[in-house]
């Protein structure tokens, strides 16, 4: 049984790696695949707050925007390499994440939801009005693509990411990296602390868990992942405009993790695949009915209501069980679930 599932996983990995070489994978298909990866990273990053800590984040895309514009500005104005920009953007994202969460650290989760509700709009307002920095509504064209330049090693070799294929592999690497980090954190001391805060903050505090410190780490970590996705997106799409980071996008990412099951890392990836694919289909189908493409969010809203009502664990609860996790936590979660049901 175990051998079979390992073989299946290997097969899946091979399929993913060979995907761009297949005849049916046109630039468009690869573009959608990369988009899925960006959203998978966003979904995994958002998942930290509502999934692990029970705090509803309604403005997550703000960090995506902060990361993207940091990458855009540093790359355009200072000619920095992607590899230098990533840690800087992630650090800035983390800082903003802590600043945003800090006022609500001592208050109930409702206040956090309220504060995050307007956050995306605040970021968009800043991006639109600080024209000296961001060019405002005109957007930011001409961001250079990612390149690998080994001249600092004394080797005269340079590779520019000119088509979708290299972005596909880099995106795959990024998703894998974030995925592994998330899984490791969920099983770590940090992840257990978050779980206890989520289940019962009062009990957690009385067991000596520093609520404010652990929540701050969650704010920073979640935001840094969002900024990372933004960085990648900026150097991939090579154009930025404030409108990309509207409230709707936060909602879309939230819908992904609700679909996959809150707190479920595998589910976040599945959710992003399903919703981006659905979005692409609706983008083509909706105009046939004479509807604006934004109305695809109607389906997302409905989906969210129905899932919360009928399947609060996400539509694929089986996927959660197949992810490798420490026995201890699995048992604990099962016991908590049983207690809640009974």
């Amino acid at each position: 049984m175990t051998g079979q599932s390992t073989a299946l996983k290997l097969l899946g990995l091979c399929a993913l790696l060979a995907f761009p070489l297949m005849p049916f994978s046109s630039e468009y298909v690869l573009h959608v695949a990369v988009l899925i990866m960006v959203y998978a990273v966003l979904a995994m990053g958002l998942n930290v707050l509502p999934g692990f800590c029970d705090l509803l984040d309604l403005g997550y895309v703000g960090f995506y925007g902060i990361g993207a514009y940091t990458a855009g500005i540093l790359s355009l104005n200072y000619d920095m390499s992607f590899w230098v920009v990533v840690p800087l953007a992630a650090a800035l994202g983390a800082l903003c994440g802590v600043l945003r969460g800090a006022p609500t650290l001592r208050l109930s989760g409702d206040y956090f939801a309220i504060v995050t509700f307007g956050f995306t709009e605040l970021v968009v307002l800043f991006l639109t009005n600080e024209i000296w920095l961001t060019r405002g509504p005109l957007g930011m064209p001409g961001i250079p693509p990612i390149d690998i330049n080994l001249s600092w090693l004394g080797i005269d070799w340079r590779y520019d990411f000119m088509s979708e294929t290299p972005y596909y592999y880099l995106g795959l690497l990024m998703v894998a990296f974030v995925y592994v980090v998330m899984c490791r954190i969920e099983d770590s001391r940090l992840g257990r602390a978050w779980l206890s805060i989520k289940e019962d903050p009062l009990a957690a505090a009385s067991c000596g868990i520093n609520l404010m410190a652990y929540k701050s780490v969650a704010f920073a970590f979640s935001a840094a992942v969002g900024a990372l996705a933004g960085c990648f997106m900026a150097r991939w799409s090579m154009f930025l405009a404030p409108d990309v980071f509207k409230f709707w996008e936060s909602f879309l990412v939230l819908c992904m993790i609700v679909l996959g099951g809150l707190g479920n890392i595998n589910g976040a990836i599945v959710g992003s695949v399903v919703l981006i694919a659905l979005g692409e289909v609706l983008r083509v189908v909706l105009p046939h009915f004479g509807l604006p493409t934004e109305t695809r969010f109607l389906a997302y809203g409905l989906l969210m209501i129905l899932i919360m009502r009928f399947k609060p664990g996400g539509i694929f609860p089986a996927i959660a069980a197949t992810s490798k996790k420490s026995r201890l936590i699995m048992d604990l979660k099962a016991r908590l679930q049983a207690e809640r049901a009974g």
């Binding site: 509502p50 029970d54 509803l56 309604l58 989760g109 409702d110 939801a113 709707w248 909602f251 939230l254 819908c255 609700v258 809150l262 969010f297 109607l298 997302y300 809203g301 409905l302 989906l303 969210m304 209501i305 919360m308 009502r309 609060p312």
Partner: peptide, 13 residues
């Protein structure tokens, strides 16, 4: 959290 997410879903809907 379920009720809050439903509320935001209704809003978008």
């Amino acid at each position: 959290l379920a009720a809050l997410i439903t509320a935001i879903g209704v809003s978008i809907f």
